[in-house]
Design a protein around this nucleic acid. Structure first.
Lengths: 344, 344
DNA sequence: TTGAAAGCGCTAACAC
DNA sequence: GTGTTAGCGCTTTCAA
């Protein structure tokens, strides 16, 4: 539901202006605006009216300056990263539900992670949520000693850093199990190099093959997180003899590149080769892509991340540092039985 | 070049702390930290050292509260929009070069534009840059009466709203001219409905066809800004008899969907059909996409937008309200001569 | 329930 | 060149 555009006051309207108009003191207006106890119903109503008439908007800077709490959570995200978009979308409502605000800091080609973090520190956020950061663990640890830090969608082993992530190893096992169930015996993996989650997913791939007694058929190709990485890997894949009948790919973006190159080379998907992605980002759901993928539940991940941040901020209770959510296989149209085999 | 991770202070360090350690007064430290004139070289050095030792970071909230200027530019962008990512990437360095900071406010499926703007107003930005907003012109005008508002990549006719955009009509003319030059006579257009720039691009398409005496061959299909919109339009396109030999598409994202569906239907691009996009976003540049497209110069657009904002803020000089940048054709691999014709 | 006074961290205006 | 004083808009004592 689109919210009504708020009216814009002509000049900066302060609590003092509202107080004057309502004929009460400034602190009383503050009490009413914050919605806390301590004002009579009549005054409450009068103040509300005065504020509305004047188009008063609280000045969050001043508010944060005075109360040591800022109720501000800093978020570092990659501006080019489709899945990060899904995560940011989930963080807003999760934070709002607990009375916190978000301040975004983008990582771009010319703005690296330390810069993005520095901007946030200057804004005096109380905690940080980092989406798949590449920062060294030592630095994350240093940050986390000073303020709550939650890393989303990456593994970090440090005693002060909270982690919320999907069980990526299990995710890849699900993908492989699905393909094996369809009858595939020769399954390649295009990995994500050093990117967040890549090592876990590789591990899941190998473990699943081993569980099916197919370790000898393992084929690891080096990929990455972008479409271009997938395209390059697909070209290598096409030269493999014998060609695998299926390939699990590091993430959806990368899988998109793989699909494009395979199809341009005349390979039918899934008739000649099956492809799986990872994330279930917006990309995978597109009707013409219809990518079979492993779903990371963005809403659940973001809720968990915000819960953890707020838990640390509000109560000192400290539970497990790592929260691992289960992934789910989403079967769409890029996987099917291999050509020469009839599926069980 | 990655910047070194800054060290993190144990507790909030204030100017007073630095002043005490350096043995000078608080305002003098302020002078040094801001890098303005009025301190001796010796003290300057001493203060710098003290600040460094203590890990001092200025509190931007307090700074903004005191000086009425916040030097903060609010940016509203669509978190799912690839081209907006390119624009945000350009805005950061453009703003920094002029001594301003950016504060980002995302539009997501559950957070509409009025909300995004409201958040920014609360943060006391001095000006707003809106990326392809859908907000009604009247509301934009109301905003613009109170603070500088620059709309990027959309046409708005309002006497208070600044606009920086590409000449979209000329862009589409360039695409059509290119295709006609290759020998195409039957060129369709998949449009962007009511999205920013769509009307202009439609106009350019029709004008270019008319200039070549091909108005009768005009084929307008309804599309949109997403891959799915393109995919749907492509399915319609495939049923057209006779099939056009080329199609100009509203933007790169939409064109990606078009390409996928065409290829899945067995059409060779560009041998059987040529396709052009619009934006020259990251998508178009991918090696396996290699989309012929119309380049919107993100760096130039963002520089112009920030220049305009700052111009308005710093000097009262008010020039033309609309700044229109020239687009450029980028020929890649999705366009070529039509099958039955030899190009001139 | 309400108001007066103080101060969050910083910068602007002024004196020295 | 340097320190003093004052106050941005707000919230937090604390007294009435």
């Amino acid at each position: 539901m689109p919210s009504r555009p708020p009216s814009v006051p002509d000049r900066r309207v302060t609590l003092a202006d509202v107080a004057a108009r309502a004929g009460v003191s400034v602190p009383l207006v503050s009490i009413v605006m914050r919605g806390v106890a301590g004002a009579s119903p009549e005054n409450r109503e009068r103040v509300r009216r005065a504020a509305e008439d004047l188009g008063y908007r609280p000045d969050s800077r001043a508010r944060m300056l005075r109360s040591s709490r800022s109720h501000l959570i800093g978020v570092v995200f990659g501006v080019q990263h489709a899945f990060h978009g899904d995560l940011v979308s989930g963080l807003y409502p999760a934070a709002e539900a607990l009375g916190y605000e978000l301040t975004l800091s983008a990582v771009t080609p010319t703005r690296d992670e330390p810069r993005a973090v520095a901007g946030l520190l200057q804004d005096r956020c109380e905690a940080l949520i980092l989406l798949g950061p590449q920062l060294p663990t030592a630095y994350l640890g240093e940050l986390a000693r000073k303020m709550p830090v939650v890393v989303l969608a990456r593994t970090v082993r440090h005693r002060d850093v909270d982690v919320v992530r999907t069980d990526d190893s299990a995710g890849l096992r699900q993908a492989v199990d699905h393909l094996v169930g369809l009858g595939h015996r020769s399954i390649a993996h295009i990995d994500g190099g050093h990117n967040p989650g890549a090592a876990e997913r590789r591990r899941g791939y190998h473990a699943a093959l081993a569980a099916h007694g197919l370790s000898d058929a393992a084929r690891l190709l080096s990929g990455g997180l972008s479409e271009d990485d997938g395209a390059a890997a697909a070209r290598v894949l096409l030269d493999l003899r014998p060609m695998p009948t299926a390939v699990t790919v590091f993430n959806d973006r990368c899988a998109t590149g793989v699909l494009d190159v395979l199809r341009q080379a005349g390979m039918a998907v899934p008739a000649e080769i099956s492809v799986t992605g990872y994330d279930d980002s917006r990309l995978a759901r597109l009707s013409h892509v219809a990518l079979t993928t492993i779903r990371q539940d963005a809403a659940a991940l973001t809720r968990a991340a915000v819960d953890r941040v707020v838990g640390r901020l509000d109560h000192e209770t400290i539970g497990a540092r790592e929260q691992i959510l289960a992934p789910a296989l989403v079967v769409r149209q890029t996987t099917g039985p291999p050509r020469s085999t009839s599926a069980p």
